[in-house]
Design a protein around this nucleic acid. Structure first.
Lengths: 220, 220
DNA sequence: TTCCAATATTTCATTTTTGTAACATTGCCA
DNA sequence: TGGCAATGTTACAAAAATGAAATATTGGAA
């Protein structure tokens, strides 16, 4: 479960936020002392920080700036001042997003999810359902089992994954695999798809790739 | 240069936006007809779309939803209605970000840059000096020349790249390559490093990997 | 329902990748 | 300045990946 650290001096807001986050499946954590904010943050190493700009002892922006020098935890700035200048400053100091009070709960959750997803992508680990993917190593992991894909299989799988919301034509895949595919047998793609499907089946993902005859393929 | 398509019915705003974007180094494009919005968008295939929620003939959200079924162009929703509901809807329909009018020019530019950067990351393109790297395809590109790395070579290169600021021990690399390397000849790593160096030399990166005898390797 | 083009599967030969072994070189320390 | 362990290079055989060919299956249009 992902832990989210709340750095905020209004106790009412802290409680509300904690409840909201807990309901959404996160593990909320509230900073107990602002005097040693930086140390406490580093030692609790949360997955994300909700950082209020107006906190006692320290300036939120300053804290962010200091944090950024030693760690790489995603930060969403929370500000009650509704001025554009603040927002610009936060972004340039390295906040991943910002939100102004009062915020809509759903929006906050969406933004948290978006930032977390971005970080996952950055670390080069892609996920598909409950499968972790290490593209350059050609590895798919599902719980205890590990699956090795060849380069072509991984290229196809990643292309489908990055276009999961639509049908991908065979031509697109051929272009992605072989760029100019003049010399390559059209059936080579079918064979590679077939091999990929065979392997996906081994980790319980039979039928993950649907054929849309005449159109292309679709990843469920 | 990145093209940005403006979908907005207020001509004054269109002009202002165009000027702003042009100054920031983008190529602005204005949708001429809302009647065939979808077709026009697809045929102009911009790098990003600024989409107003309130446009004639079509609802902005609906248009976004339709677009998402066939393409994957980043979209920033622009809304003058300052209600949270709109924002939530846009996000769930697949907008990459949204902004409410009136917006601060700098913020708009920051958000555009952020979304574009995210998309680049998503497409999995890494860079090293003036070299573009497509990890899963095993391709290094430098201007006109293209280099093919094998899986092991790419794993080593990416590991060095992701730890460019420090010396990487041979043991770390062996672990990254073979996880539990009991059965594998220690020299296998040396050979793979050697092969990688040979290929890097071909694109003018001889000496990119330094040996720190007794410690490991260091990527310049 | 029938037919046929689109897609799947299996097998096989070629090419590429890989680890090992044998030998060469390097650079540090006494 | 040797000596020697760490690292580099080259050649080679085994293993893996790959595309083509032959054949089988499928799903939709007529």
């Amino acid at each position: 479960m992902k832990t989210i650290l709340i750095v905020e001096d209004d106790n009412t807001i802290c409680d509300e936020l904690s409840a909201l986050l807990r309901n959404a499946g996160y593990a909320p954590l509230v900073l107990s002392s602002f005097k040693h904010a930086k140390e406490e943050i580093l030692s609790s190493s949360p997955n994300l920080i909700l950082l209020d700009i107006n906190i006692p002892y320290l300036n939120g922006e300053l804290l962010l700036k200091e944090l950024r020098q030693t760690c790489d935890i995603p930060v969403i700035m929370v500000t009650s001042r509704n001025t554009a200048v603040d927002e610009v400053l936060s972004m340039s100091y390295g906040a991943d997003d910002y939100i102004t009070k009062p915020y809509h709960p759903t929006i906050l959750l969406l933004r948290i999810a978006a930032v977390l997803k971005r970080y996952e992508q950055r670390s080069d680990i892609v996920t598909y359902h409950d499968i972790s993917i290490l593209p350059q190593k050609g590895i798919l992991k599902k719980e205890d089992t590990e699956l090795l894909l060849t380069k072509n299989e991984m290229i196809i799988f990643m292309y489908l994954l990055q276009n999961q919301n639509r049908i991908v034509s065979r031509d697109e895949l051929m272009t992605d695999l072989w760029n100019n595919h003049e010399y390559i047998n059209d059936n080579a793609l079918t064979v590679n798809i077939s091999r990929l499907r065979g392997k996906l089946k081994e980790i319980g993902c039979a039928d993950a790739i649907e054929t849309r005859k005449g159109l292309g393929y679709f990843l469920l």
